[in-house]
């Protein structure tokens, strides 16, 4: 009854993730079908499969909508997975790359590139993401460095991460204080988070990173699951806790850095997608990591659709919509399922 029950629970959890993936596919289709141009669905479909010679139509669908819809799914998945791993290795339900200064580092990097952008020997569309990614990496290195020196306990990494968050927020405020009104406006818009900067090339990069990082994390899935029983018990089971924690931290920081670099700071997804996954499928990381990816993707994709529907003709900043849409859903989930455990 132990094995059979376990297999049944596993099948149920896989079913839940499959169902969420199906809903994600629907959301993705809606994302492609909606937009300020109010195109008929049939025309969108024809364009996607290549049966159109209308340059206007293919420009809207293939150059605007497809990159945005793909980016929503990929960035959502990246943020969901990185939030799940952060919460696991830091034994902290509030941890995400947002609370640990990785996103703040990216924000500072982006603002810096916006301010001195003209002086950089880079094409404009890539200078900001590169700087954002670079400073996300720096923030990660700071936190991991502290962990390396003093033993990577979860408390220490959380404290170092929060310190990093305040440091980069202060530096960002300084830049905003010094910036011209035009640059300030650009910085603030970047910080809102937006999918409008998406392109197929950028979506391809995020896809590549997600595809590379997920297997690496899944290889540690059992060890990450064991870590949730506490450091000492994980050690007793043969886990090299400090190494695992730093390895996973750096891996997901890379994931977050890439995602945030292209779309700006979208805070809520990384925090909430793992909680939804945990409530529905438990903490066996082999299923929880893919589930966090799917729920993160679903949240951001649905937010992308909603951002176009709130005010027809305009696209709301996605960072705002994500929280407005996600908070009530999350509250409902916690209240409805909270009594079960």
């Amino acid at each position: 009854m132990g094995i059979a029950g376990w297999r049944a629970a596993h099948a149920r959890h896989a079913g839940i993730v499959g169902l969420a993936a199906a809903v994600l596919a629907v959301s993705f289709a809606f994302d492609l079908a909606t937009g300020p141009a109010m195109l008929p669905v049939a025309a969108v479909l024809r364009t996607l499969v290549g049966f159109t010679h209308d340059p206007m139509l293919s420009a809207i669908v293939l150059s605007l909508r497809l990159p945005i819809a793909l980016m929503a799914v990929l960035v959502g998945a990246a943020l969901g997975v990185s939030g799940a791993v952060m919460q696991t290795i830091l034994a902290n339900p509030l941890a995400s790359s947002y609370t640990l200064g990785i996103s703040a580092g990216a924000g500072f990097g982006a603002a810096l590139a916006i301010l001195v952008g003209a002086a950089l020997p880079l094409p404009g569309a890539w200078a900001v993401p590169l700087a954002a990614f670079g400073f996300a990496g720096l923030a990660c290195a700071l936190v991991a460095g502290v962990g390396q020196v003093r033993g990577a306990t979860s408390e220490l990494l959380v404290l170092a991460g929060i310190a990093c968050l305040f440091l980069f927020q202060a530096l960002l405020s300084l830049l905003q204080f010094l910036a011209s009104p035009e640059a300030l406006q650009q910085i603030v818009f970047w910080l809102f988070g937006s999918l409008l900067r998406a392109s197929l090339a950028k979506a391809g990069i995020v896809a590549l990173v997600v595809a590379c990082v997920l297997p690496v994390l899944l290889a540690d899935a059992w060890r990450l699951t064991a870590l949730q029983l506490g450091d000492e018990r994980a050690r007793a089971l043969g886990v090299r806790v400090t190494r695992l924690r730093l390895r996973a931290f750096v891996t997901v920081s890379l994931l977050t850095g890439v995602a945030v670099a292209f779309v700006g700071t979208i805070g809520f997804v990384g925090l909430v997608a793992p909680h939804i996954a945990r409530l529905l499928v438990g903490e066996d990381q082999r299923i929880m990591l893919p589930a966090s990816a799917v729920f993160g993707a679903l949240l951001l994709s649905a937010a992308s659709v909603a951002s176009k529907l709130i005010m027809p003709g305009t696209v709301f900043p996605i960072g705002i919509v994500t929280a407005l849409l996600g908070v009530p859903f999350f509250a409902w989930l916690v209240l409805a399922r909270g009594g079960r455990r």
Binding site: W6, W222, T225, A226, G230, L237
Partner: peptide, 28 residues
């Protein structure tokens, strides 16, 4: 080695907890 109980309330079933006892040889 069984350390002192640390009151961890990971969302794992008893079966999953016991399965982790085989961590050294568990495949994905």
């Amino acid at each position: 080695y069984m350390p002192q109980d640390n009151a961890s309330s990971a969302a794992l079933t008893a079966f999953e907890v016991v399965l982790l006892g085989r961590l050294r040889s568990l495949s994905l």
